[in-house]
Amino acid sequence: MFTKKSVVDDDERRRREHPAIRVRGLEKSYGKVEVLRGVDFDVARGSIFALLGSNGSGKTTTVRILATVLKADAGTAGVNGFDVATHPADVRASFSLTGQFTAVDDILTGRENLVLVAKLRRIKDPGTVVDGLLDRFSLTDAATRKVSTYSGGMRRRLDIAMSLIGNPPVIFLDEPTTGLDPEARIEVWQAVKELAANGTTVLLTTQYLNEAEHLADRIAILHQGRIIANGTLAELKRLLPPAKVEYVEKQPTLEEVFLAIIGDDGTNHTTDTTTREHE
């Protein structure tokens, strides 16, 4: 009882004293190619933080270092108050990684994939947890089918569901919507918003500007291995000259047209955009 209490106190203290993610002076080279050249940022608990950058800017390298699957050349990185270099096991117990390429087992069914992760995370009652997640990610009907028959969006949803088992306080999503069609992208966005609403800290990397704009509380722009801007959307907008008032005919984007015609979640999305237009 006593030890349990002190563990809880430790958790509390760590939560108060450390941000969910802290990165300082991170450097990494592959041979002569310097990928990260001194990266610094903090991610506050319970927020969605977007690391924005083009291909090859070092987003994935940063995530892989935080996920303890890659070692940094210099600098420090901490997750949930634990240093990735000195306490990798504690770090691994604190986060879940959804990598750039869906890490699901094609030969198993969706359900078997989830049960496997639940067993590996030593969940007491895997069945209930798995059923809950299947339902939450609309995969109940496909649960007993082999994952090789899933669509890209379903695979990504399963991938994210696998990451949520065990309720890790921090989730890394490395380009979660790359290669997805617009509908599937909206499904993923919805899932990410729900995560943050439940208090999970989300570090998201993306090359899509509108994705960062839609989801993130803070956005950092990673360019040639350095963070060149870091702030809320409003703060970043202030970096540019003040907006001029102009009258422009608002044409729907092809994406809005596509979503409106197929009549899925699209209406929501269009309303969103329009609302922002008025602000």
């Binding site: 996920a67 303890t68 699957v69 096991a89 691994r92 117990a93 986060f95 879940s96 990684l97 990598g99 750039q100 390429f101 869906t102 890490a103 699901v104 087992d105 094609d106 992760v117 590996l120 995370r121 696998m162």
Partner: peptide, 12 residues
């Protein structure tokens, strides 16, 4: 497939 990396990033 990336599943190897998923296992590597888990506390196992």
């Amino acid at each position: 497939s990336g599943i190897f990396e998923r296992f590597q990033s888990m506390p196992i």
